[in-house]
């Protein structure tokens, strides 16, 4: 491989990394500004959004730590369910979010682990900080496994699996998106 080719592939990788990160940051900004309709628009029609349960298991049985699709979950959504959730937040009577929570989605450790030209497998870590009312504080840390599809000039989310770093959830609800 020539020096020029090596440089070109490195630059291509950096551009792609930049594009993916900017997409994820844009998405996080939409959530933090409660722009749920626009956020749902980032998902493809065949999207699958899934947050399994997690259980404290011994190292020997760690492969059973997370539930799988078809088993109980916190979120198991197609695009239609995401739209219903967004619509519910917008009713003006969704009291769990009125007054609205203040959230900050911090997205880090973004890695493109697969790229077949049409779709990308992207892993990231998140810290979602939420405060409510005068002094309620929730923090959720975890990782996401996304599948992003090239659509038109940009990207869209085909699949998002969210793995929380809690077993017994320490919060009273999950009236937000991850």
């Amino acid at each position: 491989m020539t020096i020029e080719a090596t440089t070109k592939s490195t630059v291509d990788a950096m551009v792609l990394q930049h594009e993916v990160e900017q997409f994820l940051y844009h998405e996080a900004a939409l959530l933090d500004s409660h722009s749920y309709d626009e956020w749902v628009d980032l998902f493809t029609a065949d999207a699958h959004y899934f947050m399994p349960l997690r259980r404290t298991m011994t190292r020997r049985q760690l492969h059973l730590e997370f539930t799988k699709p078809g088993e109980m979950a916190y979120f198991d959504e197609d695009k239609n369910w995401l739209e219903i959730r967004a619509k519910k937040f917008a009713t003006g009577t969704s009291w769990a979010e009125d007054p609205p929570s203040r959230t900050r989605h911090l997205i880090t450790n973004v890695r493109i682990v697969e790229d077949d030209g049409d779709e990308l497998a992207v892993h990231s870590n998140f810290l979602l900080y939420r405060t409510r009312l005068k002094n309620d504080v929730d923090q959720w840390v975890g990782r996401r496994e996304d599948r992003l599809r090239r659509v038109g000039t940009g990207l869209a989310i085909v699949k998002r699996f969210i793995y929380l770093d809690q077993t017994v959830l320490q919060s009273g609800n999950l009236s937000t998106f991850f």
């Binding site: 916190y74 979120f75 519910k88 009291w95 769990a96 409510r132 919060s171 009273g172 609800n173 999950l174």
Partner: peptide
């Protein structure tokens, strides 16, 4: 459940 579209609203009433 915590993300359930009914139960989301309950917890804060009780708290």
């Amino acid at each position: 459940g915590p993300a359930g579209m009914l139960e989301q609203e309950d917890g804060e009433n009780w708290a």
